[in-house]
Design a protein around this nucleic acid. Sequence first.
DNA 1: TATGAATGAGTTTTCATTCAT
DNA 2: GATGAATGAAAACTCATTCAT
Lengths: 210, 210, 210, 210
Amino acid sequence: MNCPIKRWTRRKEARPEEILLAALSLFVEKGYSATKIEDIARVAGVTRGTPYLYFANKEEIFKAVIRELLLPKLPLGGEIVDEWQGSARDLLCQLFTTWWEVMGETQLSALPKLMIGEAGNFPDVLQLYHDEFIVPGNELIRRALAYGVARHEFVVQDMEYALHILSAPIVMAMLWQHSLCRCSPEPLESRRYIAASLDILLNGLLLRKG
Amino acid sequence: MNCPIKRWTRRKEARPEEILLAALSLFVEKGYSATKIEDIARVAGVTRGTPYLYFANKEEIFKAVIRELLLPKLPLGGEIVDEWQGSARDLLCQLFTTWWEVMGETQLSALPKLMIGEAGNFPDVLQLYHDEFIVPGNELIRRALAYGVARHEFVVQDMEYALHILSAPIVMAMLWQHSLCRCSPEPLESRRYIAASLDILLNGLLLRKG
Amino acid sequence: MNCPIKRWTRRKEARPEEILLAALSLFVEKGYSATKIEDIARVAGVTRGTPYLYFANKEEIFKAVIRELLLPKLPLGGEIVDEWQGSARDLLCQLFTTWWEVMGETQLSALPKLMIGEAGNFPDVLQLYHDEFIVPGNELIRRALAYGVARHEFVVQDMEYALHILSAPIVMAMLWQHSLCRCSPEPLESRRYIAASLDILLNGLLLRKG
Amino acid sequence: MNCPIKRWTRRKEARPEEILLAALSLFVEKGYSATKIEDIARVAGVTRGTPYLYFANKEEIFKAVIRELLLPKLPLGGEIVDEWQGSARDLLCQLFTTWWEVMGETQLSALPKLMIGEAGNFPDVLQLYHDEFIVPGNELIRRALAYGVARHEFVVQDMEYALHILSAPIVMAMLWQHSLCRCSPEPLESRRYIAASLDILLNGLLLRKG
DNA sequence: TATGAATGAGTTTTCATTCAT
DNA sequence: GATGAATGAAAACTCATTCAT
C-alpha cells in the first residue's frame, strides 16, 4: 500500500517460487514433456526468457519443484513419528492421514505419476526423488513399524518389503487420481479409501476366529 | 549396401507381430513418446514406411500392443477362478502368482507404467486399457473375494475399494521395476515380494492373539 | 458371355486406356500432384504396380492422357475449317460450339487448369501440350480468321494476338468450371456464355457497313 | 559460422512483409505446394522457425499474401471509376491499363495462376480470393459498363456474362505469362496485347451508328 | 532484471517407385 | 502379365534455448 517499492522487492524474491508453482500446476495438468516453458512463464506472469534467469533449463525446474515444494513436507511425518506416544495402529493411521492431506489432496500428488511416467528419461530427477523423498519416506514407515513390533502390536515377517506393500495403496490412489480416474465415472472417496486400506493392512482378509 | 541380407523380404503374416514386439520392447525401454517410429522399424527389421502398412499411426500401434499382446492373457485368470475348488486363500495366491508370471516377469509389466505416465495424452488408449483390461481384471479379483466370503474364509468390509487395495502391491511392483528400480542397487525379488504381499493382505499387521 | 477368353484379351489391350481414363477423372477431381498412383490403379480396377507395366512413371501417365485422350479431338476442328463453305461468322460459331462440346463439356476441360496449375513443374508435359495442342489449335483459329478476312467479313488488326483474345473466353470458362465455380452459387450456363462471347467478339470483328 | 552478417537481428516490424514478399516470389516461381517453408525463410533472410512467429501455417501465409499484397490494390480501380468524367471507352481503357500496371506487370500476376491451379486444395484461400478480389473486381467492371450504357456508348446484351468475357483476355495474359510462355520463344508484348484486346472488345461494345 | 524475437534440431507421415512372388 | 509388400526420400511444424535490446 504505502510501500510500493517494497512490494516490488518482494516480487523479485518471490519469482522463483511463482515459477515453480506454475510449473507444478502445468505438470499436473499435462505432464512434464507436454508442458512448454512458455506456458509456465505465462502462468507465472512473466515472459519466455525469465525462467532461464532462475533455472538453467527445463529439467532444473523439474528438480526444483521436487526440492522446493515436495521435500519441505517430509519433516511433518518425522515429527509425528518422533513424538508419538500412543498405539502403533493409531500412528500408522495418523501417518497415512497426514500423508494424504499434505500430498494426496494437493497438486503434489501428481509427482509420483510424473516420476513413473517421464522421469525415466531424466535420470537425475529420478535419483533426486528417490534419494531425498522415497528413501527418507520409507524410513518413516520403517520406524513406525518397528515401533509397533517393539510394542508387540505388529508382526512383520519381511520388514524390507513390507515398506513397499504398506505404501502401495496410498501411492496407487495418487496415481489413480491422475490417470485412470479419467475413465471411471465415480471418483475416489479418499477418506473411505484410506479407511479400507488401513483395515486390510492391519487386519488382513482372513476371518479371525477367536 | 554392404548388407548381404536380402532387403526385399515379404513376410506379410509375420510383420504385424514383429512390429508390435519391437514397439513393446522400445516402449519398455524409453517410453511411448520417446520411441520413434523409425526405431520401431529398425528393431523390427524393416524400414520407416513399413509400420504404416499395418497400422494407421503411432497411437494405433500403442493400442495394438494392448489388444494383441496384453488382452490375450486375461482368459488365463478367468480359467483359474472359474474352475477353482480349494481354499480362497490359495486361489488368491494362485491368481497373484499367475499374474506375475504372465505379466510381471515379462515386458508387459511396462504397460501399467505407460498407461499412468503417458496415456493421459492419448485418451483412447487409456480408455481401451481401462475398459478391456482393468475392468475385467478387477472382476476376477472381485469373484475371488466373493468366493472367499461365501466360504467364510474372508471378511471384506468394502468390496469396491478392496479390489484396488489388493492389486496395489502387484501393480506397484511392476511400476517399480520400470522406474525407481533404476535408482536402487538391489533388485526386487519377486517371489519374496509376492509372499510378503499375500502375508500382509491375508493376515494383516496386527498380532493375532488367541 | 460365351467367349470369356476373348474378353480377357480385350481387357489386356484395353488396360492402358482404362488407366488413362481413371487418371483423367482423378486429375479432374483432385489435380495431378494430389492424385496418387494407387488411386488411379484402384479406379482402373488394377493394383499398385500395374500402371508401371504400361507407363514409365506418373509424369508419363500425364503425357499419355494428353496424347491419347486430348490430341485425337483436334482433327474434328480441322475438318470443320477445311470443308467450310458458309459465312466466317458461322464458322467461328461452329468452331466454338464444337470446341465446347468436345472439350468444355467433358473431363478434358480440366486439362487447361492442370497445365496452368501444375505443369510448370513438369516442363515436358507443358511442352507437349503447347506443341501438340495449343499451336495446332491456334492454327485452326488463324485459318478461320483468315477465311473471314478473305471474304471481307472480318477486320483483324493484329492477327497474332487476336488468336489468344478470341480463345480467352472459352478457355476461361473451362478454367472457371474447375476452380472458382466452387465459390459461386450459380453455375455457368455454357450455351448462354458462348452466345454472349460470340456476340461481343463478333460484333467487334465484323466489317462495319454503312 | 563463416557468415559475418549478424545472425540475431530483431526486425519485428519488417519481418511479416519480408516473409510475404519472399513467399510471393517463390510461389510465382514454383507454385504454392512446391514451395517449402524453408525456402521462404531463406529468401526472407531468416530461419525455419521464424515464419511461424508471424503466421500460423503455410496456408495462412498464402492468405496473407492475398490480403496484404493484392487486396490493397483494389481501391485504385475504385477511384478511377468513381471519379471518371470522360468517355466510357476511355474509362475501360484506363481500367485495363491500370490493372495491368498494378498487377499484370508485377509478381501479383501469378495469383490467378495459383488460384486456378492449387487453391482447389485450399478452399479457404479460394474463397478469400473470390469474395475479396473477384467479386469487388467484377463490380468495378460492371460499373464501368453501366456507365457506358447510361451514356449510350455501350450496348450490353448479357451484363452478367459480359463481365467474365471482358476480363478474360487480361486474366489469360497473366496466366500465360506464368505458364505457357515458357514454351514460346517470343514473349507477350503487353501494351500491344492490351490494345488488341480493347480493339476487339470495344468495337463489339460500341453502339453502331449508321 | 526482464523481454520476446530468432534460432535450428528433431519426428511423424505420405507416396512414387521397386521387385520378389 | 499382375500383384502388393517393402522401400526411403521429403517436408511441415514444434519448442527448448539464446541473446540483442
